[in-house]
Computed example of a mutant assay.
Amino acid sequence: MAWRDWATGSMLARFAAEGAAAEVVSRYAARPAEAPLLARRVGLRPAEAPSPGPARDLGWAEWSVRMGQLSSLALPGLDGPVHAAARQAPLALARGATRSLLRRDYPTAARIARWLALLQHEGVALPLDPVPLVTHLRMLGNGPRLALDTAIAGNLLGLEPV
Protein backbone atom coordinates (compact mmCIF):
# COMPACT_ATOMS: atom_id res chain seq x y z
CA MET A 1 0.00 0.00 0.00
CA ALA A 2 2.85 2.37 0.79
CA TRP A 3 4.26 2.12 -2.73
CA ARG A 4 0.83 2.71 -4.29
CA ASP A 5 0.28 5.74 -2.05
CA TRP A 6 3.71 7.05 -3.05
CA ALA A 7 2.86 6.68 -6.75
CA THR A 8 -0.50 8.40 -6.30
CA GLY A 9 1.06 11.25 -4.36
CA SER A 10 3.87 11.67 -6.89
CA MET A 11 1.46 11.79 -9.82
CA LEU A 12 -0.85 14.14 -7.96
CA ALA A 13 2.03 16.49 -7.14
CA ARG A 14 3.23 16.40 -10.74
CA PHE A 15 -0.03 16.86 -12.62
CA ALA A 16 -2.32 18.73 -10.25
CA ALA A 17 -2.95 22.42 -10.74
CA GLU A 18 -1.12 24.86 -8.47
CA GLY A 19 -2.25 24.30 -4.90
CA ALA A 20 -4.51 21.35 -5.73
CA ALA A 21 -2.06 18.78 -4.33
CA ALA A 22 -1.77 20.69 -1.06
CA GLU A 23 -5.56 20.94 -0.85
CA VAL A 24 -6.02 17.18 -1.27
CA VAL A 25 -3.28 16.43 1.25
CA SER A 26 -4.84 18.80 3.77
CA ARG A 27 -8.23 17.07 3.29
CA TYR A 28 -6.65 13.73 4.10
CA ALA A 29 -4.67 15.22 6.97
CA ALA A 30 -8.02 15.97 8.65
CA ARG A 31 -8.84 12.23 8.37
CA PRO A 32 -5.46 10.56 8.85
CA ALA A 33 -6.93 7.10 9.36
CA GLU A 34 -8.23 7.07 5.76
CA ALA A 35 -4.98 7.79 3.94
CA PRO A 36 -2.08 8.41 6.30
CA LEU A 37 0.67 7.69 3.80
CA LEU A 38 -0.71 10.09 1.21
CA ALA A 39 -1.12 12.78 3.85
CA ARG A 40 2.43 12.41 5.14
CA ARG A 41 4.41 11.41 2.07
CA VAL A 42 3.31 13.15 -1.11
CA GLY A 43 6.27 12.85 -3.45
CA LEU A 44 8.45 10.98 -0.96
CA ARG A 45 9.46 7.36 -1.27
CA PRO A 46 8.22 5.22 1.58
CA ALA A 47 11.32 4.53 3.66
CA GLU A 48 9.97 1.57 5.59
CA ALA A 49 8.10 -0.10 2.74
CA PRO A 50 9.99 -3.04 1.26
CA SER A 51 10.32 -3.31 -2.48
CA PRO A 52 9.47 -6.70 -4.00
CA GLY A 53 13.19 -7.46 -4.32
CA PRO A 54 14.73 -9.50 -7.09
CA ALA A 55 12.79 -12.38 -8.62
CA ARG A 56 15.37 -14.91 -7.41
CA ASP A 57 14.37 -14.25 -3.78
CA LEU A 58 10.77 -15.45 -4.26
CA GLY A 59 10.68 -17.43 -7.47
CA TRP A 60 9.36 -15.98 -10.68
CA ALA A 61 5.71 -17.02 -10.20
CA GLU A 62 5.16 -15.41 -6.80
CA TRP A 63 7.35 -12.42 -7.69
CA SER A 64 5.44 -11.67 -10.91
CA VAL A 65 2.13 -11.79 -9.02
CA ARG A 66 3.53 -9.27 -6.51
CA MET A 67 4.66 -7.05 -9.36
CA GLY A 68 1.15 -7.33 -10.79
CA GLN A 69 -0.18 -6.06 -7.46
CA LEU A 70 2.13 -3.06 -7.86
CA SER A 71 1.16 -2.37 -11.48
CA SER A 72 -0.18 1.06 -10.60
CA LEU A 73 3.49 2.07 -10.33
CA ALA A 74 4.11 1.08 -13.97
CA LEU A 75 3.94 4.63 -15.30
CA PRO A 76 6.57 6.69 -17.09
CA GLY A 77 8.19 9.27 -14.87
CA LEU A 78 8.08 7.18 -11.70
CA ASP A 79 11.29 5.49 -10.63
CA GLY A 80 12.31 3.66 -7.52
CA PRO A 81 13.39 0.28 -6.16
CA VAL A 82 10.27 -1.44 -7.53
CA HIS A 83 11.10 -0.18 -11.02
CA ALA A 84 14.72 -1.29 -10.64
CA ALA A 85 13.51 -4.76 -9.64
CA ALA A 86 11.30 -4.90 -12.76
CA ARG A 87 14.25 -3.90 -14.99
CA GLN A 88 16.36 -6.68 -13.51
CA ALA A 89 13.85 -9.46 -14.21
CA PRO A 90 12.05 -9.06 -17.56
CA LEU A 91 12.10 -12.85 -18.06
CA ALA A 92 10.24 -13.39 -14.77
CA LEU A 93 7.64 -10.81 -15.82
CA ALA A 94 7.24 -12.45 -19.23
CA ARG A 95 6.80 -15.86 -17.60
CA GLY A 96 4.26 -14.41 -15.16
CA ALA A 97 2.24 -12.77 -17.93
CA THR A 98 2.27 -15.96 -20.00
CA ARG A 99 1.28 -18.12 -17.03
CA SER A 100 -1.57 -15.76 -16.11
CA LEU A 101 -2.80 -15.72 -19.68
CA LEU A 102 -2.75 -19.53 -19.90
CA ARG A 103 -4.63 -19.75 -16.59
CA ARG A 104 -7.20 -17.29 -17.96
CA ASP A 105 -6.36 -14.83 -15.21
CA TYR A 106 -6.68 -11.87 -17.56
CA PRO A 107 -6.57 -9.11 -14.93
CA THR A 108 -3.22 -10.35 -13.60
CA ALA A 109 -1.88 -10.82 -17.12
CA ALA A 110 -2.87 -7.24 -17.97
CA ARG A 111 -1.21 -5.87 -14.85
CA ILE A 112 2.04 -7.68 -15.63
CA ALA A 113 1.75 -6.66 -19.31
CA ARG A 114 1.69 -3.08 -18.08
CA TRP A 115 5.15 -3.61 -16.56
CA LEU A 116 6.37 -5.22 -19.79
CA ALA A 117 5.05 -2.27 -21.79
CA LEU A 118 6.84 0.16 -19.49
CA LEU A 119 10.09 -1.77 -19.82
CA GLN A 120 9.84 -1.76 -23.61
CA HIS A 121 9.03 1.96 -23.49
CA GLU A 122 12.25 2.44 -21.50
CA GLY A 123 14.27 0.40 -24.00
CA VAL A 124 14.78 -2.75 -21.92
CA ALA A 125 15.23 -5.90 -24.02
CA LEU A 126 12.28 -8.24 -23.47
CA PRO A 127 11.99 -11.99 -24.11
CA LEU A 128 8.53 -11.52 -25.67
CA ASP A 129 6.77 -8.84 -27.65
CA PRO A 130 4.15 -7.18 -25.43
CA VAL A 131 2.15 -5.75 -28.38
CA PRO A 132 0.37 -9.04 -29.29
CA LEU A 133 -0.10 -9.77 -25.58
CA VAL A 134 -1.88 -6.46 -24.96
CA THR A 135 -3.92 -6.79 -28.16
CA HIS A 136 -4.97 -10.32 -27.15
CA LEU A 137 -5.94 -9.22 -23.63
CA ARG A 138 -8.15 -6.48 -25.05
CA MET A 139 -10.12 -9.08 -26.99
CA LEU A 140 -10.39 -11.67 -24.21
CA GLY A 141 -10.97 -9.74 -21.06
CA ASN A 142 -13.52 -7.34 -19.78
CA GLY A 143 -13.97 -5.09 -16.80
CA PRO A 144 -12.88 -1.57 -16.00
CA ARG A 145 -9.56 -2.43 -14.34
CA LEU A 146 -8.47 -4.64 -17.23
CA ALA A 147 -9.50 -1.91 -19.67
CA LEU A 148 -7.45 0.64 -17.73
CA ASP A 149 -4.35 -1.58 -17.59
CA THR A 150 -4.51 -2.46 -21.29
CA ALA A 151 -5.12 1.19 -22.25
CA ILE A 152 -2.06 2.31 -20.29
CA ALA A 153 0.03 -0.52 -21.73
CA GLY A 154 -1.26 0.29 -25.23
CA ASN A 155 -0.33 3.93 -24.75
CA LEU A 156 3.19 3.00 -23.61
CA LEU A 157 3.55 0.73 -26.65
CA GLY A 158 2.29 3.40 -29.06
CA LEU A 159 -0.98 1.58 -29.81
CA GLU A 160 -3.15 4.33 -28.31
CA PRO A 161 -3.23 7.98 -29.31
CA VAL A 162 -1.89 10.26 -26.61
Rank of each mutant, 00 (worst) to 15 (best):
1 M>G: 13
8 T>P: 00
10 S>W: 09
11 M>W: 10
11 M>A: 14
12 L>W: 09
13 A>D: 14
14 R>D: 11
17 A>S: 13
24 V>G: 00
24 V>Y: 02
25 V>E: 12
25 V>S: 10
27 R>Y: 10
28 Y>P: 02
28 Y>F: 15
34 E>W: 12
38 L>S: 03
39 A>R: 01
40 R>G: 09
40 R>I: 00
40 R>D: 12
40 R>F: 01
41 R>F: 10
43 G>I: 07
45 R>L: 13
46 P>M: 01
49 A>N: 03
51 S>C: 01
52 P>E: 03
54 P>D: 13
56 R>C: 04
58 L>Y: 07
62 E>R: 14
68 G>W: 03
68 G>P: 02
71 S>N: 09
73 L>K: 07
75 L>F: 11
76 P>D: 12
78 L>E: 06
80 G>R: 06
80 G>N: 14
81 P>E: 12
81 P>R: 04
81 P>K: 02
82 V>R: 01
83 H>I: 07
88 Q>L: 14
90 P>E: 07
94 A>E: 09
94 A>T: 05
96 G>Y: 00
96 G>I: 01
97 A>V: 01
97 A>K: 05
99 R>H: 05
101 L>I: 00
104 R>L: 07
105 D>M: 00
105 D>F: 00
105 D>K: 03
106 Y>K: 00
108 T>F: 00
109 A>D: 02
111 R>E: 11
112 I>N: 08
113 A>E: 07
116 L>D: 04
117 A>W: 05
117 A>M: 04
117 A>N: 09
118 L>G: 07
121 H>A: 14
122 E>T: 04
123 G>W: 09
123 G>P: 09
124 V>G: 08
128 L>Y: 01
129 D>C: 02
132 P>A: 07
132 P>D: 09
132 P>V: 10
134 V>W: 02
136 H>E: 14
139 M>F: 07
139 M>T: 12
139 M>Y: 04
140 L>R: 15
141 G>D: 11
141 G>K: 12
141 G>W: 11
141 G>M: 10
144 P>K: 10
147 A>V: 10
148 L>W: 13
149 D>M: 08
149 D>Y: 11
151 A>F: 08
153 A>D: 04
154 G>W: 06
162 V>L: 12
162 V>N: 10
